[in-house]
């Protein structure tokens, strides 16, 4: 691990001010992804700002009937909250399907959204990677790409976003609240938080360098039954090959969001108008392309859509 300056922030103002001082800075919350990457020298910040003591660790009811989740709420605490379990089952299930119990005890709501891809070549500093080292190329294109994207990728990067939590939040149309060093705040729909790679795969979100996620707000849950289905190579403690968060109401109308397929949680609103599983899949998978070892994800996603709709109808 490269040396860095460690700063312990007391509140979000101190944290964002530290991040605005010119050094390359990372906020550290759970640290479960960041420290992993720092040990491999994939991440080499000059400064780490510890935000574990800034508060932002409450889950509160909103006047609209939703929930406002502090950015520092740990994944285990969020999945366990009875309001989440009963009103946002897809979110609770998504969280519980991710990582291990030890990691969920540390990982935070804000950090989960900002976790980096698990592309093997991003982690391997001996290989080219446009995300880690812009302009160096993409080793995944002609390499082992079983876990890689079939939607939203580019010729520069085919990495996927690994989060389960973010897929459920995308389904629920969550918004992400942030603050910057100058005190300005904004609300970002989760659909626009993550960027597609295009020719700048190193730029993964719309956040500025001194911008800190303070909370995630869930609107009231849409009517219908919520589920999260995750298909992976191992029954526990593995990233999704394909995952789907879905809400299906009594009339059979559904909305879905997908993980494991794209560089960001993937949702195609036009598919909501369809009720036939294959018609939904046609919309969701429009433009899908495999890169060899991940070709299977296209038929797998189609089958998962069918399975979810069949299971929910009982």
């Amino acid at each position: 691990m490269k040396a860095f300056i460690y700063t312990r922030a007391r509140d979000s103002a101190q944290a964002t001010n530290a991040a605005a001082d010119g050094k390359t800075t990372k906020f550290i919350a759970g640290g479960t992804n960041l420290l992993d990457l720092m040990k491999l020298q994939v991440e080499m910040p000059e400064q780490l700002v510890d935000i574990n003591r800034i508060g932002l660790d409450k889950i509160e009811e909103t006047p609209e009937g939703g929930l406002k989740i502090g950015a520092m709420v740990r994944n285990a605490a969020l999945a366990t909250d009875l309001r989440v379990r009963t009103r946002y089952e897809a979110l609770s299930r998504a969280l519980l399907s991710g990582a291990s119990a030890q990691l969920r005890n540390k990982a935070t709501t804000g950090g989960n959204l900002l976790q980096r891809t698990r592309c093997y070549y991003f982690y391997d500093t001996t290989k080219p990677c446009n995300k880690r080292s812009p302009g160096s190329g993409c080793a995944a294109l002609g390499g082992f790409n079983r876990i890689h994207a079939i939607l939203g990728a580019s010729e520069h990067c085919i990495a996927t976003h690994p989060s389960d939590m973010a897929v459920a939040m995308r389904l629920l149309d969550a918004t992400v609240e942030t603050v910057k060093a100058d005190g300005s705040t904004r609300t970002i729909p989760i659909a626009t938080l993550h960027k597609l790679p295009g020719d700048t795969p190193d730029q993964e979100t719309v956040l500025a360098r001194d911008e800190l996620i303070t909370s995630v707000t869930l609107p009231p849950p849409p009517p219908g039954r919520q589920i999260y289905r995750k298909v992976r190579d191992r029954a526990s403690y593995a990233f999704a090959l394909v995952s789907v968060a879905a809400i299906i109401d009594q009339s059979g109308r559904s909305r879905m969001a997908f993980g494991g397929l794209a560089p960001k949680p993937w949702r195609v609103e036009a598919a909501d108008q369809q009720t036939d599983p294959d018609a939904i899949a046609d919309h969701v998978l429009q433009g899908a392309a495999g890169y060899g070892a991940n070709d299977f994800k296209i038929p797998l996603a189609r089958r998962v859509i069918r399975a979810v709709l069949r299971d929910i109808k009982g």
Partner: peptide, 9 residues
């Protein structure tokens, strides 16, 4: 609470 002590400073 259980955590991985290797991934925490």
């Amino acid at each position: 609470q259980r955590i991985n002590s290797c991934l925490s400073l």
